[in-house]
Every structure is written in C-alpha cells, then in structure tokens.
C-alpha cells in the first residue's frame, strides 16, 4: 500500500535527523488525542527558534544596519556644517534651521501635551481613512479582477481620479462633507485607495488558472475558490498595495489637515509655516516621515504571517 519507491535526494536528506521524531508523529497523526502533544512540541520549538533567528538576523544585517546608521549620522553632520557655514551654492542654507535647533524644538514639544494630541489626532485619522481604504480597495480590486463588467464600470473612474493630487480635492471635500473631520479623512482615504485597488486587481489577475481549475475539480464553490485560491494568490500583491497605500495616505493627510483648524501633525506643520517658524516646520516634516515609516513597517509586519508560505517557497 505504502509507496516508498521514490528515492529523491530530498527524501534522504530528511531521513537521518528526523527519523525518530517523525515516526512517533506518524502514530500520533492517526488519532485525535494527539493534537495537544503536537501543538506542545510545535510551540516549544519556535520560541527557541525565534531567539536564534533574531540573533542570526542581527548578525547577518549588522553590517548593513551600521552602514545605514553611519549614513544618517553623516547626513545630519553635513546638514549641520551647511547651516553653520551658511553655505550658498545655488541651494541656499542661510535660513535653514540647523539640526541642533530642530532637535531642541522637538525636545520642547515633547514636553508639551499638545504635541501628543497632534500626533494622536493624525494617527486616528490615518487609521480611520486607511482601514476604510483597505476594505474598499480590496473589495473593488477583487470585483474588478473577477468581473469584466465591474471592471469596465470602475476602471475609467480610477484612471481619471488617480492623477488628481490630494491638495486639489480640498475645496470639493469641504463642500461635500458635512464635517471638517469627514473631509480630512476623505482626502486621506483617496490617497491610499488607488494603490490598494490597483495592486489587488493585479494580484487577482495573476492567480494561476490551473489552481482555479484544480479547486473546481475538487468541488469548491465560487465562494470557496475566492477564499482558498484567489485571495491567497493575490495576497502578496495586496500586501504590497497596502504598504504603498499607507505611505501615500500620510502625504495625503498633510494636504487634508490644511483644512483642520486645530489639531493634527499636518496642521502643526502648516501652522509653523504660516508663523514662519522654520525649526517647527522641519520637526513636523520629520515626525510625518518617521510615523509614515513606522506605520508602513507595521503594515508589513501585520501581513507577514499570511505570507509565511512564500518565504518557505524560496
């Protein structure tokens, strides 16, 4: 009954170190009661592995990381020199705030509650706009990928609306939305929406037809094919769209917060601009940059468990 004629190298490689463990697993797999035993085994090993792999990653990337840190240090130092010597070589540094001034402005703001409110308000707007854009974008992208009619209906809108910059939406957004908050979130949402739709569409179109056929012959319904085949096949592309969308939503937010009368890190930056407070402008810019980077990283991290199979496929 058992087929063991195959003698490929992959089989041999695994036979020696795992033979003991796997033979016990074979017995366990036959029953139901073994589930806990297997789980325990699987849970203990990863914890040890996580430490080992974390150390390995740091070691492996130690060189790259230190180069990146050095690069930043050199960049800030050059900025310092350029402002200290008031360099004026076509690009003029005479009125550019030096890094130390920016740092002290940042430090002062860090001691003030308002600064945190600015950040919190912005992050809340980002979260609302981004999550809505993610849901809408994935749904629209999937519909477009699976239905020619949906595609023909939606595509012209995407093509026409996509190149319009967030700033250009401000007047209409104010007219259309009943609240200021609504129009800010709307502008932010638009920025994230298009990359998510287009990447989802791309991912759905890339689904290998043979997998859809296989699922059909195994008896899967349309919904099951969507859930088990199309969605996972599109996921790498969707996750790229989600990461890009997060970045775009931050720079749309800045445009949206021009409307805001009180809070938001974009508002903070615009306010500093109108008060000609140069160090604060740079503080606002850098905070947006850092929050944008962190949130994009968070998106990638959140998507990682769903893409674990990809890593093992390489």
């Amino acid at each position: 009954m058992t087929i063991s004629g195959q003698s490929s190298s992959a089989l041999k490689d695994d036979q020696t170190p795992l033979s003991e463990q796997s033979s016990t697993q074979t017995e366990q797999d036959a029953g139901v009661a073994d589930v806990t035993i297997n789980r325990n085994l699987n849970e203990v090993l990863p914890i040890r592995n996580v430490f080992a792999s974390a150390v390995a990653i740091i070691r492996k990337h130690a060189l790259q990381t230190s180069i990146s840190v050095m690069s930043l240090v050199v960049g800030v130092y050059l900025w310092h020199l350029a402002t200290a010597y008031k360099v004026d070589l076509y690009i003029n540094f005479q009125n550019v705030p030096p890094p130390l001034k920016v740092w002290s402005a940042f430090w002062t703001h860090m001691g003030q509650a308002d600064f945190y409110i600015h950040m919190a308000v912005s992050m809340q707007r980002i979260l609302t706009a981004y999550l809505t854009a993610a849901v809408l974008g994935i749904v629209i992208g999937v519909l477009m990928g699976r239905s020619r009619i949906a595609r023909s209906v939606v595509y012209p809108y995407i093509e026409i609306l996509r190149p319009i910059p967030a700033v250009a939406w401000i007047p209409l957004a104010i007219l259309m939305w009943p609240t200021e908050e609504g129009s800010i979130v709307f502008i932010t949402l638009l920025g994230a929406l298009f990359p998510i739709i287009l990447n989802t569409l791309h991912g759905v179109e890339q689904t290998p037809e043979v997998l859809v056929r296989a699922a059909k012959s195994l008896g899967a319904s349309r919904l099951q094919i969507f859930r088990h085949v199309i969605l996972p096949a599109a996921l790498p592309s969707i996750s790229a769209g989600l990461a890009i969308g997060m970045g775009v939503s931050w720079f749309s937010l800045l445009a949206g917060e021009i409307i805001s009368g009180q809070y938001g890190i974009g508002y903070f930056t615009w306010d500093a601009y109108s008060l000609i407070n140069f160090p604060d402008i740079v503080v606002g810019m850098l905070v947006i940059g850092c929050l944008g980077t962190l949130s994009t990283y968070a998106v990638r991290l959140a998507m990682k468990p769903f893409l674990a199979w990809q890593k093992r496929s390489r």
Partner: peptide, 15 residues
C-alpha cells in the same frame, strides 16, 4: 469532485 484531475505540474496550492 466525482472526476479527480491531476495536472502536469504546479497545480498544488502553494500557500
């Protein structure tokens, strides 16, 4: 599902 199908290759769900 009454007719099982085996394809030439790459038809397993990679995920």
């Amino acid at each position: 599902p009454d007719r099982g199908m085996v394809f030439q290759q790459y038809s397993l769900f990679p995920w």
